[in-house]
Nucleic acid binder design. Structure first.
Lengths: 155, 155
DNA sequence: CTTGTTTGGTCCGATATCGAATTATATAGT
DNA sequence: ACTATATAATTCGATATCGGACCAAACAAG
């Protein structure tokens, strides 16, 4: 009996599908929201990388960044290239491994990220009126757990 | 006192940012997972549209589809064009409004979507071992609420 | 030390995405 | 009815994304 209770296999699949569908749409919405507050030409992946460098640590390699965001390394090369050309990061060879490069955020990069966070303040405040912080805090552990599990399956 | 309790403004923003960051990564992971089971050349947006036509109803217009997934209409034109060329949908003029067109799924389209769902069965089952259905069911209403609220703000 | 394999990164070509401008139809205001 | 505005969709150009091929350094095995 691999189907012990009243929930059919198809219904189970449908629930997971709805989950990922909702997540996909929210990702899309939040992306649009953020990009409306970023300078022209700077998009979500740029901001995400800058923020990662600030939050986690400076000097991550391209591969570390790519796996942190679960994107192909070619995409990360392109994203970092754009940030470098715009002067928001510098890229330096890794003395510990000559194959790899380390990405450092510049003060311009920090300014950009901080400015975006500030610009988003009112949007967050407005959202918090309808979807309060407690609900976010309740969801976060669940999402983190799901992310970790999925990460592990396709490491 | 717009800052009544112990949680600072910055910390509040950080929580929402982490929320959207997790959601973005999960969206990315689920996309990769799905596309691994789809025929070459068919990607998430294609599948999403087919599924929407099945779940919600046949004959939606391009704008309805675009707003359902919160993507620009130009992107939806492109996506539906690909589906049409591949024979998974047909597009017909809308008799009620000559500006718009209605998208209908073909039997090939239904077959494709059903096949993908079947192919994903084992993946879902495996995921369900580590992240069981109850947790999904607990999260879904929260995500739907958040999606609805964000939808409303940027309708 | 050599050879085979793995790993970090880039380059290239194909497709996806999206904003701006355009066309055609619909709707509103007078 | 007539003009103004709004809406559905497409086209076009610019950029993003990604898979495959490639190169160079690291590492493993003999």
């Amino acid at each position: 009996m691999t189907q012990p209770d009243t929930t059919s296999q198809a219904e189970v699949g449908a629930a997971y599908f709805r989950l990922f569908n909702e997540i996909g749409i929210i990702a899309q919405l939040s992306r649009t929201l953020l990009e409306a507050r970023l300078p022209k030409g700077i998009i979500l992946p740029h901001f995400s990388v800058l923020n990662h460098l600030i939050r986690v640590r400076d000097g991550r390699t391209l591969m570390e960044l790519a796996s942190a965001f679960q994107v192909p390394k070619t995409s990360m090369t392109h994203t970092v290239g754009g940030l470098e050309k715009a002067g928001f990061v510098t890229v330096q060879p890794n003395p510990a491994d000559k194959r790899s490069k380390c990405v450092f955020i510049t003060s311009e990069g920090r300014t950009l990220a901080a400015g975006a966070v500030t610009a988003l303040g009112p949007d967050v405040a407005e959202l918090a009126q309808d979807f309060p912080l407690e609900r976010v805090q309740a969801m976060l552990p669940q999402l983190e757990a799901l992310r970790t599990i999925m990460d592990a399956k396709r490491g």
